[in-house]
Amino acid sequence: MNAMRGEVRVELVGQSRTLCLTLGALAQMEAGLGVRGMAALAERMAVMSAGDLLVVLAALLRGGGEVELADGLAGASVDARAAALAVAEAFKAAV
């Protein structure tokens, strides 16, 4: 884990996983949520659906190098509370 890069380790699907808010992750979030720009992304994230949460979590997982889980996230048994906390931790680490 590289804290200087903003990486965080979280427990998801029974394993410790790395999440990171990268420029690529932000672009994936914008595309996946159908928004353009940081203001629109922030507005959309204020009222996220379960599907939105999966899009954001997958982008953060890819940013952390967890591509296999990110690509199979829709079929994985992910606890909603754990997913929300993981996303919050990743954004907190990025500041």
Score class of each variant (00 low, 15 high):
residue 88 A to N: 11
residue 58 A to W: 04
residue 78 V to D: 13
residue 55 V to L: 02
residue 5 R to C: 00
residue 11 E to R: 12
residue 48 M to L: 14
residue 12 L to M: 06
residue 90 A to Q: 02
residue 40 A to R: 07
residue 30 E to N: 09
residue 49 S to A: 06
residue 91 F to P: 00
residue 31 A to L: 11
residue 11 E to N: 07
residue 53 L to R: 15
residue 93 A to Y: 09
residue 73 L to C: 11
residue 65 G to C: 05
residue 50 A to M: 13
residue 44 R to V: 04
residue 48 M to N: 05
residue 13 V to S: 12
residue 51 G to Q: 10
residue 89 E to W: 01
residue 26 L to I: 15
residue 46 A to K: 13
residue 44 R to H: 13
residue 51 G to K: 00
residue 44 R to N: 01
residue 89 E to M: 10
residue 1 M to Y: 01
residue 90 A to P: 01
residue 78 V to L: 12
residue 27 A to Y: 02
residue 1 M to V: 08
residue 71 D to R: 14
residue 65 G to N: 08
residue 4 M to Q: 09
residue 16 S to E: 14
residue 81 R to E: 15
residue 44 R to D: 01
residue 83 A to I: 11
residue 81 R to T: 15
residue 10 V to N: 04
residue 16 S to I: 04
residue 14 G to S: 08
residue 46 A to T: 07
residue 73 L to Y: 12
residue 26 L to W: 01
residue 24 G to A: 09
residue 37 G to N: 08
residue 36 R to M: 06
residue 89 E to G: 00
residue 88 A to E: 14
residue 17 R to P: 02
residue 55 V to N: 09
residue 70 A to C: 04
residue 65 G to S: 06
residue 55 V to K: 02
residue 35 V to H: 04
residue 80 A to D: 12
residue 93 A to L: 06
residue 70 A to M: 08
residue 10 V to F: 05
residue 80 A to V: 15
residue 27 A to K: 06
residue 9 R to A: 07
residue 36 R to A: 13
